[in-house]
Write a protein that binds this DNA or RNA. Structure first.
Lengths: 214, 214
DNA sequence: GCGCTTCTGTACTCAAGAGTTCAGTTGGCG
DNA sequence: CGCCAACTGAACTCTTGAGTACAGAAGCGC
């Protein structure tokens, strides 16, 4: 009787796995390059696979899209982890924060990350749940991690931060937000300006929050 | 012979003007609510006008869209002008900057402005020229105006700003960028947090750039 | 190697939406 | 008030792209 409540089960096996990955890779490439307007025929062709196969793996375009977006989100988690690890080694606060800021900017200006961001924001109306998922798995997680970084620096007596929630946003504002804003209109900050912004932003942050002892 | 190189001239007259405005208003409403996916039939209906009339005024959907976007951009210019006017009256720097920041945040979180922003960023791929126009008429102009504000405060001896270009971005970062970022994912900052961010951001900015005399 | 599952290729259906046609109506300018 | 430009409405064309059907050709598990 009813083998599957929704529709026939997705294919499994070695061959199927290869196809699936090729499809996701192609879809990611085309979605990030052309947005949701990318055609299924086009994706199938790019994956070197028949369109029917695509539909055997993913029941619809929406399903494929959310799969791609979800997978790309998962990759974002790595950055923050290694960031906090490196922090333990930093000698003084300025160096620590400069390091952190640099890592953040690098991550934020990474083309594939940017493409994902623009993809999600661009398709907001079509996938409201996806936007919420992105918010939760990206920005919210980064903010939490950054909060812990600041807490740690406070615990070491290097910083004095009365309102961590605010300070986290301020740090992001002074480092990555200008890049994100520029990127959201399809532009990028000139490297020279980016450099000044980074060092000066950290300076600004420090002048407010560092303790006398540091 | 050839009356018009492209196609028949757009209608003129009192009746035509009424139609045109109704069309643009309806298009703006629907485009900002549903994005470029909004249908021409839908727009015509909302404008209380026949679809043919729409095509008599605007040769294509693209043309109508750029008209709407361009018109909406024009309205953004008012804010910055009155902002600099109010600034002349402000007694002390903190108050002046708080005022400025408040006006900026109000403007940035204004729903219709946000809708325009999201509309342009969302349709970036389809209208690259439009994005450039937006960049030039919105952000670039705001940055220039803010630069003059800072210059003025420097001239009055209230601030000391070594790198105005950087300081402008920092001020925007500390005030409006968090709102823009939140809005780009379809969210909004909680009012309480927004308030703390505003006052604290100005404080942060001042601690760095105000002169001893102020 | 047998057989099931997966994949291919092509050709199809179906729906939506942009833009057009046209015969007839209406508003407004002279 | 008479004419012409602007408008209506509804039916139409065309294109595009999602999703399907099906008959046959692999690949892979056993």
């Amino acid at each position: 009787m009813g083998k599957d409540s929704s529709r026939s089960a997705p294919p499994s096996g070695r061959r199927a796995e290869r196809s699936r990955q090729a499809i996701v890779a192609a879809a990611r490439e085309l979605f990030t390059r052309e947005g949701f307007e990318a055609g299924m025929d086009q994706i199938a062709a790019e994956a070197g696979v028949s369109k029917v196969t695509v539909y055997n793996h993913f029941g619809s375009k929406e399903e494929l899209f959310t799969e791609v977006a979800g997978q790309a989100m998962g990759e974002a988690h790595t950055t923050m982890a290694e960031l906090r690890a490196r922090l333990a080694e930093a000698a003084d606060v300025r160096e620590a924060l400069l390091d952190t800021a640099h890592a953040l900017v690098d991550a934020a200006t990474d083309p594939s990350r940017l493409a994902l961001r623009n993809l999600v924001t661009g398709e907001l109306r079509r996938f409201p749940e996806l936007a919420r998922a992105y918010q939760h798995s990206g920005p919210a997680r980064s903010a939490a991690a950054m909060g812990e970084v600041l807490d740690e620096l406070c615990a070491r007596g290097l910083l004095a931060v009365p309102d961590v929630e605010v300070a986290v946003i301020q740090f992001f504002s002074l480092t990555i937000y200008p890049h994100l804003i520029a990127a959201s209109i399809g532009g990028a900050l000139p490297p020279d300006l980016a450099r000044r912004l980074l060092t000066d932003g950290v300076e600004l942050f420090l002048e407010r929050y560092r303790t006398a002892s540091a």
